[in-house]
Design a protein around this nucleic acid. Structure first.
Lengths: 138, 138
DNA sequence: TCCTTGACTTAGAGTAACTCCCAAGAAATA
DNA sequence: TATTTCTTGGGAGTTACTCTAAGTCAAGGA
């Protein structure tokens, strides 16, 4: 059994966020001890893992709650859950593609600046530089 | 030259967001025509591209403003800008790694559910199921 | 000339998902 | 006993949009 602090450390999610998620109904099954303190089991950690995963991929909290509710509803919802996981996976793959594109932009920029630095060139691309050759020299 | 609407379409960023970014000082160089209407040049589109890229990778607007301000300051800040791009790239690479990990989690889950469906098994991992074998049968 | 369309402005409300602060209460330690 | 260390819940604050309102201005078509 783990306290919220331990879970925060193990799963690399802040205590704040875990409480927020708990309040959002993401962990309806986490037990409390006699002092009302949350006792996360190893199984609960897996639950945190999947919530973290869904969040990391941009799933809205409302949708995560729906997924949790399907889990609570029992085995009759397995196919629905399967579909959600598949869709989420597709979304993650799309994000991967998007991230690759942004990395290309950053690569281009990096090379652009490195070239300027190595050859001691002016940044003629910057519109602010163009304007210097006008009244703005003041 | 492009209107804000055209830019929104070309760069796939909403007009609202473009105005919001403009108000945030991300495009201090975009010209206006005699009717005060923004006229984005092709060069400005590149500016939108880099802002979009920085945002997509999670850079805070405050930090984006700083980068823009460095650009405005001129060629003396090229090394600073180079450093920012490098750091941003590293951040994007970290995100890529994180995304890959989450995809592993999703793969695992997908296989798990597929196995349940194909073999018509119960989800014994779900704590809600375990509880059924108690007082909760009611 | 009137009307529609599109762009502009400021201001403010609403939203998501945290993120932080704080006071209360229990337990552990000095 | 006093103090420190936790955990708890409530609620305020933050970021970055996102949307609506309310009004202005100018160009182009019927």
């Amino acid at each position: 059994m783990y306290t919220i602090k331990e879970v925060a450390k193990i799963m690399d999610v802040s205590e704040h966020t875990l409480r927020f998620w708990a309040k959002s109904g993401f962990f309806p099954f986490v037990e409390r001890d006699s002092n009302n303190i949350r006792q996360f089991s190893d199984n609960d950690l897996e639950w945190v893992r999947i919530v973290k995963c869904l969040r990391a991929v941009g799933t809205e909290n409302k949708a995560i709650k729906k997924y949790i509710d399907l889990c609570i509803a029992g085995d009759s919802t397995i196919k629905d859950r399967y579909k959600i996981i598949q869709e989420t996976k597709q979304k993650a793959l799309n994000q991967m593609e998007e991230l690759k594109k942004q990395l290309d932009v950053l690569d281009f920029k990096e090379n652009f600046y490195r070239n300027l630095i190595e050859h001691n060139l002016e940044d003629t691309w910057n519109p602010m530089n163009k304007r210097k050759t006008g009244a703005k020299t003041v």
